[in-house]
Design a protein around this nucleic acid. Structure first.
Lengths: 117, 117
DNA sequence: TCGGCTGTTATAGAAGAACTATAACAATCG
DNA sequence: CGATTGTTATAGTTCTTCTATAACAGCCGA
């Protein structure tokens, strides 16, 4: 479970945590049934507050990617497999964009509007 | 030039303006050499502040998508064609994600990490 | 050249989001 | 029971966003 965070990024900390987890799911390093590390552990290892990590976990729950229960932790749901199914396509797009020198923001913005538009 | 803005969105207003412009580029409705509407006009028609629109224009400039000069306005650069080149692929990915009931945030997050990762 | 249009810069304030800190609570599990 | 885990509550600080106003400086057409 690799969770990276860049305090200098313009992306909010909690969003970076959630993004890290999603990527772990998409790449198959985090499978349905697996449990995420305890929020308190992640918070300590990243040097951020407990609530920052919990906010990320709750976002993932709202997306249906994890089940949250006190005492039990955060468990990856079957829906996480959907992310893995898109991984190859996403990676191909990312490589093309990178080859054009396109910024992450630019591509992410286009993709976002492409989904809700 | 369609520039939409949703005050209730969690995406910042200036980011929504920039996203609208990028989408116009990607779909070919805004071509290299075209001039963007004056920031003051956009601000008035959207009911937002001049600076909010200018922040969007400056982000687009930082991405190399427009040239900004006082008195002349914001002119679309050749790099905007790169966006159009990715349009079909982005649209296909967006449709697949939409079919899975995936949120714009989820997909945009995965794509963002796929570029900088 | 003049006048209007354009982005640029400066300043300031209000509002909201993000992050932190602490603490108590409640479900789960060994 | 006791440790672990997410949940909720409260509060305060910091940062970003958005607004408002005003003056400035480059560009262009008449």
């Amino acid at each position: 479970m690799l969770i990276r965070v860049d305090p200098a990024s313009d992306v909010a900390l909690f969003a970076q945590v959630a993004a890290s987890v999603r990527t772990e799911m998409a790449t198959g390093r985090l499978l349905p049934g697996n449990r995420l590390p305890a929020a308190r552990d992640v918070a300590e290892s990243l040097g951020v507050n407990l609530h920052t990590v919990l906010r990320a976990y709750q976002d993932l729950r709202d997306e249906g990617l994890v089940d949250l229960r006190r005492g039990r932790g955060a468990v990856v749901t079957d829906r996480a497999a959907d992310l893995a199914g898109l991984h190859a396509e996403i990676r191909a797009l990312g490589e093309r964009a990178k080859g054009l020198g396109m910024s992450p923001d630019t591509l992410a913005s286009l993709v976002r509007e492409s989904v809700d538009g």
